[in-house]
């Protein structure tokens, strides 16, 4: 593409990003806001592609736009739309109206000042020559990392410790949701057309997840994108009203949830016992160790995201009986 065309493309992309964010925040209708936010996620995925970040683009399309939107929409289900009166900015008397107005403007001005300060700092940073120490160190050591995709090399080798802690954050978040309540009731069985689509879509999603996991070593992809795609298969099954969505129950579920952190720690500690630094893979084994950790991480991430969509611990008794009971209690579902 020539540079004039690219400038027009950039301008359109930036306008849609800022416009969608503005529109999503300006409305007080929860569903409208969420759907605009999902659209923002998709446009951002295009922007990541434009800025040569295909790994991030894949994750954004699967997680930022897809799963976040699904989570939020599931939470908005059953919410009154339009909102309860205290949330609209209709004030009770003139004094409160004046105060409210002043507060709104003060907050708006402070946010503008925040943006201004950030822009000033950025322009200052951009005016200095950029350091390229880290990218050079990565390309110099990429051959010893066991993979040829530099993003996977950073995530699973050079900064593996961060990724281990990230998986721990995921596990903590899902344990937090478990502590807060039971899973939401399922949906009614889907119609013929959607059910037919699901029969095709789910195997394709599972296959795509496997491909993304394998491709992560040398091309855009990896455990996060694969896990999100696998979770999407479960979400689709759930939306179609299936009671079995690929999640095990009881002990097996707990094993899968902990598999990512567990395998990661096991590899790290084994290496420690063999006299190497924690998570300092020997170059000859690095590729296989990374694939092993990523496989475990993919299952953990998929289970975690799916449990997040369910909104809590699924009941470990007979799934069908529970679903039927819930359907009787709540005829809408």
């Amino acid at each position: 593409m020539n540079s004039a065309g690219l400038i027009v493309f950039d301008a359109l992309l930036l306008l849609s990003i800022v416009g969608l964010a503005w529109a999503s925040l300006a409305t007080t209708d929860v569903r409208r806001s969420i759907i605009l936010f999902m659209a923002l996620g998709l446009v951002l995925a295009v922007a990541w592609g434009r800025l040569l970040a295909p790994d991030v683009a894949l994750a954004e399309a699967a997680i930022g736009a897809g799963l976040s939107g699904a989570l939020l929409l599931a939470a908005a289900h059953g919410q009154p739309s339009p909102l309860p009166p205290e949330s609209t900015n209709a004030p009770r008397n003139h004094g409160a109206a004046g105060m409210g107005m002043v507060l709104r403007w003060a907050i708006t001005l402070l946010c503008a000042a925040l943006a201004g300060t950030l822009v000033w700092a950025l322009l200052h940073a951009f005016s200095n020559p950029q350091h390229d120490m880290l990218p050079r160190a990565i390309s110099a050591n990429l051959a010893a990392s066991g993979v040829s995709n530099p993003v996977t090399a950073v995530l699973l080798n050079f900064r593996a410790y961060d990724t281990l802690l990230e998986l721990a954050v995921l596990l903590t978040a899902v344990l937090g949701t478990f502590a807060l309540g039971q899973a939401t009731p399922g949906y009614r069985p889907a119609g013929l057309v959607f059910d037919g689509l699901v029969r095709w879509l789910v195997p394709v999603l599972i296959l795509t997840a496997g491909y993304l996991l394998w491709a992560g070593a040398h091309a855009p992809g990896g455990a996060f994108q694969a896990g999100a795609t696998l979770a999407a298969a479960g979400v689709v099954l759930r939306l179609a009203g299936r009671t079995r969505i690929g999640l095990p129950v009881g002990f097996m579920l707990r094993m899968i949830m902990a598999a990512g952190v567990g395998v990661f720690l096991l590899v790290g500690l084994t290496l420690l016992l063999l006299g190497r630094p924690f998570l300092g893979y020997p170059p000859a084994w690095a590729g296989s160790l990374i694939l092993m950790i990523e496989t475990a991480a993919m299952f953990s991430i998929a289970a975690t995201l799916l449990l997040a969509f369910l909104g809590g611990q699924p009941e470990s008794t007979d799934v069908n009986a529970v679903a039927n009971r819930q359907r009787e209690e709540d005829p809408r579902c």
């Binding site: 930022g64 939020l72 993003v151 995530l155 990230e166 995921l170 807060l180 996060f224």
Partner: peptide, 24 residues
């Protein structure tokens, strides 16, 4: 530069899990 890319990938996953906890 792949380092910010890895940071953002981590960020996206942490953001979705934080969102799930917030929604719960």
């Amino acid at each position: 530069d792949p380092v910010p890319h890895a940071l953002v990938l981590t960020g996206i996953v942490v953001a979705v899990s934080a969102t799930a906890l917030a929604l719960a």
